[in-house]
Design a protein around this nucleic acid. Structure first.
Length: 224
DNA sequence: CTCCAGGGGGCCA
DNA sequence: TGGCCCCATGGA
């Protein structure tokens, strides 16, 4: 089973190459994007992020102080944020989710404070926030904090199901992938999980839509 | 017109 | 846990 997981990764990486995820100019922007992209096309998230940037709510790089921008969210309030993120949909919920996170972020002392926590504690703190479920929490851990956590999404489940791997329980799937690379160094696993998730999204978009299960042209078809 | 996208919460059994 | 409904915009 674990060998099959490693095969999936190998074939995808050899076919597509590095995906350069997560797109974003700063860690705070990555987190904002992770919340905005919930059940939403990335194209629409880009518009919302562009609106936020033009309004001065996002750092232009990690050299800037993320706490300054988080406080700016809190000062602005729901109404302002809601209008800016409208293109990303679900704006009534997501504006609250963003402010929820920013409040948590400021109280925790920003990245500096959160980095003092061990990964398991940080994961639990994130999951306790309204609007941050398993996938969003793990996306933040992997792409904004560089933790060796694999992100399970709908595409992962479709591909795994098609290839006879467990695809139901979130934790079951996540731990299967993480265990499949446990012999690697932590830094190497971060790179692998980063690419693996992005590659699964890529192959899913190309060949594994909801109404279009994997067709014969899928690069993974050779493994079936 | 319908379907769906880089989900999550609430409710129910 | 597992199923269902709601949330909302914009592209295909």
């Amino acid at each position: 089973m674990e060998e099959r997981v490693r095969q999936l990764f190998r074939v995808l990486f050899e076919h597509y190459g590095p995906q350069k995820w997560w797109p974003g100019k700063s860690r705070l922007e990555i987190i904002v994007g992770a919340i905005l992209t919930q059940n939403t096309a990335w194209k629409n998230v880009e518009r919302a992020i562009e609106n936020l940037r033009n309004a001065g709510f996002l750092p232009s790089s990690d050299d800037e102080d993320a706490l300054y921008y988080a406080r700016k969210f809190l000062r602005a309030g729901e109404e302002v944020i809601r209008e800016l993120i409208k293109p990303a949909g679900f704006f009534n919920q997501k504006s609250r989710y963003l402010l929820n996170f920013m409040e948590f972020f400021v109280e925790a002392g920003g990245f500096e404070g959160l980095e003092r926590l061990d990964t398991d504690t940080l994961r639990k703190r994130l999951l306790s926030l309204r609007g941050i479920g398993h996938e969003t929490a793990d996306s933040i851990l992997l792409y904004a904090f560089g933790k060796p956590i694999f992100v399970v999404d709908a595409y992962t489940r479709r591909v795994f199901l098609r290839h006879g791997l467990p695809a139901n329980g979130y934790e079951e799937v996540r731990l299967l992938v993480e265990n499949s690379f446990r012999d690697k160094e932590e830094g190497e696993r971060v790179k692998i999980f980063n690419e693996f998730h992005a590659l699964l999204v890529r192959v899913g978009k190309d060949y594994c839509k909801k109404k279009n299960p994997l067709c014969a042209r899928c690069p993974l078809s050779t493994l079936l």
